[in-house]
Design a protein around this nucleic acid. Structure first.
Lengths: 344, 344
DNA sequence: GCCGGGCACTGAACCGGATAAGTGGATAGA
DNA sequence: TCTATCCACTTATCCGGTTCAGTGCCCGGC
């Protein structure tokens, strides 16, 4: 089937291509009767604008891009990303924007994709995740002047718009809660240390442990996978100075950690308390259900998408702080074994 | 920053636009020395092909589309789709194809998106899910001659390529297993009845129940959500002829059903056995872990993507049958309460 | 020494829209 | 009545590539 073009419409309507273009775009320059005739013919022959031709004349692509730098197979089991994407999609689809996803193997490849998308005018803007401490993507995106919204925290000095949440405050809430239960030895199974939000969480964790005079904060770094979370948990629970509470940087690791605790014969929460970060259904399904730092991730993605659309359409947009994760106590946390009398 | 074009390269290299195009595309018509010079200049000034311009001359977009007709917020909690998408992405990204997702509210909107994508040459092909009994999308896609691969079963007579798995055989395996355990009253909590694979499962369920002379097959239709699965389970467990085993059409409903059983005071598997379809991590996390019909969903998506790329590139591609889901017995199934002596 | 053929390249048309500039006719104001 | 203005269009150009039909030049063969 041949695709109809405005030239076909022009021929059928007995006017020029230019007039058809004006009519279809609601521009002045054609009479109302001609406009109606053109629109009727376009509808009848099933005309669709050719995006390529429009893009060539500088029109937006109505597409937003997102590059994910991690193994594609992980995506299916990582609730955070999927919930984020679903929130982004919900916002985009409401405005008839599409989302283009591309999974890449490393950061140079990610930067290459941005350059390509920019060169090809394939996307109107991008959402950037997993900000690193000295992130090489930021200068590239600034240089390209590709509309960008960063999901996660960005330093003060940044010119890019970001949507972020106060992870430090959430860490403090969790540690204060554990401390109030009597825990004096709290460990953390953290995410990739080069990620900026991991660094912020680690700093906050260390500071609040110092302030509350609990044992020196111990953070074990992982790659966020369940396997790494299990390994870290095994190491913590078999160490001579075994912690009485563990704070995990995501839900997948917390669930894996719970399985490890059971496998090693520890009772949760009697022997060790566990707290997850991000509260997907996983946390509620396991036994005992996990105390978690919960936040509305789809909403987070939706806000990021909205900010990006504002940036793209030239509306004033500035970084916004999203909801801080809040603690939902469930069955995986209790007073530590030694604290029957709540003494130190 | 201004985007460099082949005209810039041509000027710098002192040749014509046409020669640059030949050089960049590996076409004959330029000398090796000129080709090298052109490539070096392109690299140096950071040239990227403008996809719009290429597409205007009929080049492929190196993008595959997928329209999801369901509420965007559901996506984050529906493991099936996310695993499918992750498998698709894994295959596509290996060949540098991108995936464009669009969530729509209804089927007319979905068809409109296909027409638009086709008209705009925005995607080279599409993956279609959730085939319905008389699916209005099929004739449209055939008419548009938009390369299409159907994920899920398609009738014999179809001209479209599909990747499918034998759901009927899986139903038979599950029912035979339950029957062997002694169950004589098996109910099913099925998905949307208008979906073709639901119909196939229902037919297979009825036939195998008849063959094994268990009680008439009862299927309750749902919309696949956990809420609907919970509602159906509540209805089944409070009916006078309470089933001793329930087969669910997805994992989300099975997990919800397990919660309902507990809430109503039934013990699983002592009072009622539960079997899930699709074996995400959810099934293994709950207590007791759920017996499930398991299949490799990312691989399923990957196969579909590969078939689509074959169709797009004009390679011979025909419908392929994917792995049949196989039963993984876990703690949620056992002999029914009355069957101590295994008698009827 | 002339001709045929191939190589390396140029120039221009083309893809399908957007849009600036130009045109002819009707109308209004002086 | 003559000009200025506006309207409703047409014409032409542009976007950035691809591709086809030349074109000039060199080389070999007879």
């Amino acid at each position: 089937m041949k695709r109809p073009t405005i030239a076909d419409i022009a021929r059928l309507a007995g006017v020029s291509k230019g007039a058809v273009s004006y009519a279809l775009n609601g521009q002045p320059g054609v009479s109302e009767s001609t406009r109606r005739r053109v629109l009727a013919i376009a509808e009848e022959i099933g005309w669709n604008p050719n995006g390529a031709a429009r893009a060539l004349s500088g029109a937006p692509s109505h597409t937003v891009g997102m590059v994910l730098h991690r193994p594609a197979r992980i995506l299916g089991v990582e609730p955070f990303f999927m919930e984020l994407i679903s929130g982004v999609e919900a916002e985009l689809s409401a405005r008839s924007y599409a989302l283009t996803l591309q999974v890449v193997a490393d950061q140079p490849a990610e930067i290459a994709v941005y350059r390509r998308w920019w060169g090809e005018r394939r996307v109107d803007g991008v959402l950037v995740c997993d900000l690193r401490v000295d992130d090489p993507r930021i200068p590239v995106l600034s240089e390209l002047t590709l509309p960008t919204v960063v999901v996660g925290m960005l330093g003060e000095s940044a010119e890019l718009v970001s949507v972020w949440s106060d992870d430090a405050a959430a860490v403090v809430e969790a540690v204060e809660y554990l401390s109030a239960l009597g825990h004096r030895h709290i460990a953390r199974v953290g995410g990739l240390p080069e990620l900026r939000h991991t660094a912020a969480r680690t700093a906050a964790f260390e500071e609040v442990c110092r302030r509350l005079e609990v044992a020196p904060a111990l953070t074990i770094s992982t790659d966020y996978t369940g396997e790494d979370g299990a390994r870290a948990t095994r190491r913590l629970l078999s160490s001579p100075r075994r912690p009485t509470a563990i704070l995990y940087d995501n839900d997948v690791m917390a669930v894996a950690g719970l399985a490890v605790a059971h496998e090693m014969g520890f009772s949760v929460p009697a022997d060790v308390s566990l707290v997850a970060w991000d509260d997907s259904v996983l946390c509620q399904l396991v036994h005992p259900p996990l105390t978690a730092l919960s936040r509305d991730i789809p909403a987070y993605g939706g806000h990021a998408a909205r900010q990006l659309l504002d940036v793209i359409t030239g509306l004033p947009a500035s970084s916004v702080q999203d909801e801080t994760a809040h603690l939902i106590p469930r069955g995986s946390t209790a007073a530590p074994p030694s604290a029957t009398g709540r003494g130190a």
